[in-house]
Amino acid sequence: MRAFEYVRAASVAEAVGALRDDDEAQFLGGGTNLVDLLRLGVARRGRLVDVSGLPLDTVQDGPDGLRIGAAVRNSDLAAHPAVRRDYPALSQALLAGATGQLRNMATTAGNLLQRTRCLYFQDVTKPCNKRVPGSGCPARQGVHRDLAVLGTSEACIATHPSDMAVALAALDATVLTTGPAGDRTLALDDFHRLPGDEPDRDTVLQHGELVTAVQLPPPSPLSSSSVYRKVRDRASFAFAVGSVAAGLVVDGGTVVDVALAFGAVAHRPWRARVAEAALRGGPATAAAFGAALDRELAAATPLPDNAFKVPLIRAVAVAELSRLAGLGTDGGRTEDGA
């Protein structure tokens, strides 16, 4: 690993200033992903500016909702009473990620900014358009069981690995940043990019732009109902094969409001707006849920070894929406089984 300079930023301004004129510097949060990437040679930096000690480590419950500091640790956020009460999908998503040790280190901003675990991205001896733009993407012909089926491009089929971000997408979170060009507020849905022909850019952040907080809107029946379900090969310490964050409000058998986002299927958390639009105002039945999912997933571009993610996501989303609608996991045939 390349020798690098390590500095601890004393203030937000100092952190932003430290990166302003240094293209080889990068912010360091909990280090649970970046340090691995440095060791692997995937990331090569001249300087790390540690922002984990900045006073961005509080969760503030206010009239505008919940403001989550960028440096709040994943374990603390998962355990926060307001999160557990008003945004259960977020707490569930956090606890579904990584391990206790990693959650104790990982920060909110770091979780959003973690890189894909695509095998080719992490192996510097192989081409990868995300790591070395223009070098090619071997994943399409190669190992891609875990990779994207939605919003892919010729250049890249990587997935975003975060669980937390999927819940945040469903909960209409916004990301607050500050940087050389001033402060910005970005919808989480707009924060992560689709790969297009610039897969090296995971997000819309500019160099030196620092995430300071994530803002959740005030609690609502939708957010309080929200759930997160992660499907994984291993019972713990594994990235999702697919995941669903869902919230649903039903009145008299009709869908009043719905939020739906998928994880591990795209380059960013996939907010299922097509399905949501199809469901709103319609019947809360398993058949309607299935039809809406089919419309959403019609856009999928699966490959041979990840094609199963399409029926998987459909099944999980229908099951969770059905459960939220009080229909049971399989259209009412059985009670809660998990």
């Binding site: 095998l119 992490q122 192996d123 192989k126 071997p138 012909q141 190669g142 190992v143």
Partner: peptide, 11 residues
């Protein structure tokens, strides 16, 4: 990995 001739998931 047929193209590269290695076990691709090596960690």
């Amino acid at each position: 990995d047929a193209a590269f001739g290695d076990y691709a998931n090596h960690d």
